[in-house]
Amino acid sequence: MKKLLLAATALLFCATTAFAQEQPGTPHPKVLPMFGNVPKTEAEQKADEKFLSSCDKSFSSRTEASSFFMERGWEYFNEGQIDTAVYRFNLAWLLNPDNVNTYWAFGLVENSKGNTADAIGLYERALKYQPKNSLLLSDAAGAYLKLYTENKKKKDLKKATAYLDQSLAADSKNAYALFNLSQVKFHEKKYADAWDYLHKSREIDMRTLDYQYLANLMAQMPDPTGLFKGEEQ
């Protein structure tokens, strides 16, 4: 009970910090990955020391504390409170810079904001810790695939394919990887293969299905299985 109370106290400490903007229209470093990678003032450094000291008293290790703040971050992320989530991820990173999940989370946030290149950098930083993590590989591949749709550079499609191959080698049932591979085949104009991978993905997890992509694929080639039918059918 004492440990839980101390943990709650540590959480309350960070929750009371305001996200004031440095300048109008400029996000506070607290809500940017790794605090925006900007030098901290003496006051900010002292605040960090106070926070770390509080966590040292609240948890058995900084690794445990880091995991605690990651969990709180995901809760806020899933509620759509992105700035608050990133701040929690930042605290988790401050506690344990080797926590792979912090870089993964930062990548997801940047990807959701449309900062694809930044997201890729963060995913690949996470991959240095877990190079065979199937889900992480498929997220990185998805970002490269998104980048390809933006600039049409073949090197990005090639990189996405390489990551997807590694992802499926680690877990052949990764529905997200299969769906992304379907999109790769679509861009390569291999529509039969695109349908095959789409169905494999759908059979594992219906949540991977993107109806805009489905419409685009049907416009190029009818579903060979007949499961999905266009208006003319």
Results as ranks from 00 to 15, higher is better:
D171F: 04
L5V: 10
R72Y: 09
V31F: 07
A117Q: 10
H28R: 09
G226T: 00
K153D: 06
A194D: 06
I204C: 03
K173E: 14
K200H: 05
Y144P: 03
D171N: 14
D223G: 01
T102S: 07
L135A: 15
L209G: 00
D210N: 15
A192P: 03
A162Q: 05
Q81I: 09
L32P: 02
A143P: 00
L11G: 01
Y148I: 01
D196Q: 15
Y123W: 06
M1C: 09
L136H: 01
R62L: 15
K40P: 07
S182T: 06
E42F: 07
A162V: 07
N174M: 01
L145T: 03
S112E: 13
E110C: 10
A215F: 05
T84M: 05
N101P: 02
K40R: 14
Y213D: 03
K189T: 10
D196W: 05
K46S: 15
T116D: 09
E75W: 08
S182M: 05
D156M: 07
M70F: 09
P39E: 03
L137R: 03
Y197N: 01
L52T: 04
L11Q: 13
T16D: 04
A119Q: 02
F179T: 00
L181V: 01
K30Y: 13
R207D: 15
L94T: 02
Y176D: 14
L137D: 00
A143M: 05
G80H: 02
N180I: 08
Y129E: 14
R125S: 14
V109H: 05
L32K: 11
F68L: 12
T208D: 11
A15Q: 10
V109F: 06
D210V: 05
E42L: 11
A92F: 01
K189S: 08
D205N: 15
L168C: 12
K153G: 03
M1I: 13
S138F: 06
F13P: 00
I82F: 01
D98N: 13
M34E: 15
W74Y: 14
P224N: 02
E22S: 14
N99G: 07
A47R: 10
E232H: 09
D193A: 06
P97L: 01
L91C: 08
A18M: 07
T149E: 15
L127D: 08
N99D: 08
E231F: 07
L227N: 08
G36S: 07
T63R: 14
M1R: 09
A92I: 00
E64V: 09
K50D: 15
T84P: 00
Q23N: 11
K132F: 10
L227G: 06
R88P: 03
A170H: 02
T161R: 02
H187K: 01
A105Y: 06
L52E: 11
N111G: 05
W74N: 08
Q23Y: 10
M221G: 04
Q233K: 11
K3V: 11
V86W: 00
G121N: 06
Q183E: 11
P39R: 08
